[in-house]
Design a protein around this nucleic acid. Sequence first.
DNA 1: CAGCAGCGACTTTTT
DNA 2: GTCGCTGCTG
Length: 779
Amino acid sequence: MEPAKDSSLPYYLRDLNSVQLKAVYHYQGPLLVVAGAGSGKTRVLTRRIVHLIKHYKVEPKKIMAVTFTNKATNEMYSRVVSLLGEIGKLVHISTFHSAGLTILRRHAHLLGYPKNFAVYDEKDSYSVLKATLAELNIDQKKYTPKYFYSIISYQKNECITPSDASSKKHPSYISLIVSQVYSRYQEKLFKSGAMDFGDLQLNWWLLFKKHKDLLERYQEFFEHILVDEFQDTNKIQYELVKMLTAKKRNLMVVGDEDQSIYSFRGARVTHILDFEKDFPDATVIKLEQNYRSTKRILRAAHSVISPSPFRRPKKLWTAHKEGEKIRLFGASTEVSEAQFLVETVKSLVKEKGYKYQDIAVFYRTNWQSQILEEMLNKEGIPYTIRGAVKFYARKEIKDTLSYLRILVNPFDKESFARAVQSPPRGIGNKTLNQIYLAAEQFNGNLLKGARYLADNCGKTKVKEFLKIIEELESLIGKVAFDELIKQVLLKSGYLERLKEIAKHDPVVFSKVENLEELRIAAYRASQDTVITKEHLQHFLDKAALTIEEDEKEEAEAEKTKGTFKKKGVCLMTLHLAKGLEFPVVFLTGAEEGLLPHANSEEKVELLEEERRLCYVGITRAQELLYITWSEDRSFRNKGSRYIYHKRSRFLEHLPEEDIEDLSEEGSSLTEELYPDVYNSQRNNFSPLSKKKNSSFSKDLVLKVADQIECKYSKECEKFPPLARDEVEEGIKVLHKVMGKGVIKTVKEKSDSDLHLEVQFENFTMPKLLSFKYAELRKI
DNA sequence: CAGCAGCGACTTTTT
DNA sequence: GTCGCTGCTG
Ligand SMILES: Nc1ncnc2c1ncn2[C@@H]1O[C@H](COP(=O)(O)OP(=O)(O)OP(=O)(O)O)[C@@H](O)[C@H]1O
């Protein structure tokens, strides 16, 4: 297809082929774009936003663009901002959940929730469910909280409310129990002034159902709604989109059936088919030219996806060159797989001129990243990882944030209980229950309940706890956010407690380090401005949705490139990779049991989803593609038995002429014959055991703990401020929060500011700082 | 009420 | 192999 090269076209319409242009020009009415990977779907969607604003003079804030994952949202955001600059930031670009949260923050009172309702994560929800099951005398061994959580989430995704669930005509025994649990659970959440993830959609939907006037206002407000990755949309999300566009019918959806990988959370590919039924007048546009990958990569991708039995065949071609062969590497152990990765990355950077951030590493499950990380660390290769063990889900972080959460929402039982008991302070379940009871007199306000108990029943321990809370509360509006976090850690005795534990168990080092990381996140979120309740709420919201702090800001920093890439090799799960692209891709763990995952082998639908996952991974690659697997990997729960895994069945049909097999010599045969030798060799191979204990001594714990207490800010006073013309790579600096470090790179951003990358002593990864705000000292 | 031993779950993917 | 929860003990 000839690109429209006419240079009289505005900048944002260049580099689009005629079919793409047709989609971008589309003004009003429903529009469906279906197309294969890399055909420019996201490009068309983002360019169309620009066109709507520039040409049709639609106000940016009246455009909403949504999708499911944070990553894909960031991708859209950075593309729009790079095309539009500041104006682009006014467009409402977010995930469905984040959009729901924003709207519910404004109107939740209409549903009876407090304005500062809490957002419960999975763990909080489990805990509520556990209490629910206990109340209903349900055997938790037989039906776990997890089980109910998944069913309730599913129901919420399907627009099923508790009352819908209980009004079933001929309920089975189990669905009867489920509906009981669902109702009681929902009641409990409500009393705690809390919503779970599903509620961010369900309550949004209910809000619009119950308050037509409000819905109309939003229908009126949003001129255009665009949905990226439409195949990942579940029922309630589709319903929401239909509701919102019912009046103006300016809805554009963009998707690819072959990339549907979220059916486990209720996403339905059939929505693409439904769309044509729901909007019979929809314009349908198909894109067939791939602009991302080489011919070889595309053929490989095709060989993976085409055997799928349910698939509607789709054309996809590219004008790009053949490119290099796809390299396969079958390793004998996960360690040698990781070694291959590390070595190859090194040589790509050294000899082929690739940058670390050009390289992505994908895997099926989060835990697979561990070994890869260790290897990369060992070799000093910079990398970024997202979502592994979610930062805000860690115990120490949740413990700390629980104090802030009850400041914002004193009804939040989960956070209240957590704060009260971390660290343990002589208040146990008995007192806790008394507080709950007392709180009923105050509409469920737990702080008031506690106050009542403290004043009238002489509970000194409770009094002491309340004193902490009140002191913290008084800091709001007075100090910066990082200071507030520090005070939480000090006043609550949490840090003291960790130091105590450190004396006999240095493992807490990583916890202290994480807390320091949290304080830095707080510092970055507020810089030196005074923290307000609104700020605090906002920060907690972002934490709840696992939106990485300043991800959007950084996206901006790299405007020129269009797409934003973080520093270093990018590690992520296959699910998170969707919508992104990289010059070099490593698809790791491409073996039976992992891809397809063992849990998905049984059912065809699940198996096919795994296939699509593999397809998604392959189609992220622009130039080079490496596929690796390991015949042997230790699965912790399966004991120390090693199970031999064959190369993934999805690789079976890779075209012979497009691949180059670099697999290790020695194979399954050797393993089967000499398992002992094999195993001992394997042990020699793991120098990476997590025995941090010896090197991360208790001194280090104390050091970081000191840091939290801001020892550096005093030290800072001893050194002269660093002037702008003194900034130079390699010089030593002191930062009041992060301590001593060396400037690694200097990036000019504008006249007013510099961007510095500083390697601090106490952190493995370098930190990005703004010169203007960092107030560095010269040492 | 806190500490500790013993037990089971954990590793599928996201918000 | 580790984490976190449960239930027992002091
Ligand atoms: N007409 C074009 N000319 C040049 N490059 C293009 C054109 N259309 C798309 N591209 C490029 O192709 C790549 C893929 O585009 P994009 O990410 O929008 O595709 P996509 O359909 O959203 O892919 P996926 O579904 O795999 O996420 C991008 O690098 C984009 O810049």
